[in-house]
Simulated scan of single mutants.
Amino acid sequence: MTALAEPDERGSLDVDPSVLRKIVEYAADTAPATRHRTRRVAGLGVGESGPSARVTARTGDEIDVRLWLTLVYPGPVRAAAAQVRERIAADLLRMTGHRLHRFTVEIGALQSDRSASPETARVQ
């Protein structure tokens, strides 16, 4: 069996910011308190949109994240945002070794839980 070279001699791994963004969006999307927002054009539903993020690399393995999302209503907004942040930080560190430095959340909407009150069509 051959011995491994020292870590500095083995090279490095660079993770593209678009990969980091996808990890952040997926982690936010799978958090229990987040929801997809219904996209509308001229009052008609044209699909859904989930959380979206902007990732900025800092020095070393630290990154800044700005996240736009929709949360379930009613619910504790601060606790939900903290839970999303913890999930994102854990996934980033586990998958890529990157640490979350600055985390900004913009909550674009609060949406009722669909299982509690089913949506009815406005036009039939």
Rank of each mutant, 00 (worst) to 15 (best):
T2F: 14
T2V: 02
T2Q: 13
A3P: 10
A3G: 11
E6A: 14
E6R: 15
R10T: 03
G11W: 02
S12W: 04
D14V: 10
D14C: 06
V15C: 08
P17E: 04
P17W: 04
S18M: 00
V19Y: 03
V24K: 06
E25A: 00
E25T: 01
Y26R: 12
Y26N: 12
Y26V: 08
A28Y: 01
A28H: 01
A28M: 05
A28K: 01
D29C: 05
D29S: 08
A33Q: 06
R35W: 03
R35Q: 10
R37F: 01
R39M: 11
R39G: 06
V41Q: 15
A42P: 06
G43M: 06
L44E: 10
E48Y: 07
E48R: 15
S49W: 00
S49H: 05
G50C: 08
G50E: 06
G50L: 04
P51D: 12
P51C: 02
S52P: 00
A53V: 07
V55Y: 04
V55R: 03
A57G: 12
R58S: 06
G60T: 08
D61C: 15
E62L: 06
I63F: 03
I63K: 04
L67A: 10
L67D: 07
T70G: 06
T70Q: 03
V77Y: 00
R78S: 11
A80E: 03
A80V: 07
Q83Y: 03
E86F: 03
R87S: 13
I88D: 12
A89I: 01
A90N: 11
D91P: 05
R94N: 03
R94D: 00
H98Q: 05
H98G: 00
R99Q: 05
R102K: 12
V105S: 14
V105A: 13
I107Y: 06
G108S: 11
A109Y: 03
D113A: 13
P118K: 06
E119S: 09
T120P: 13
A121G: 05
R122D: 01
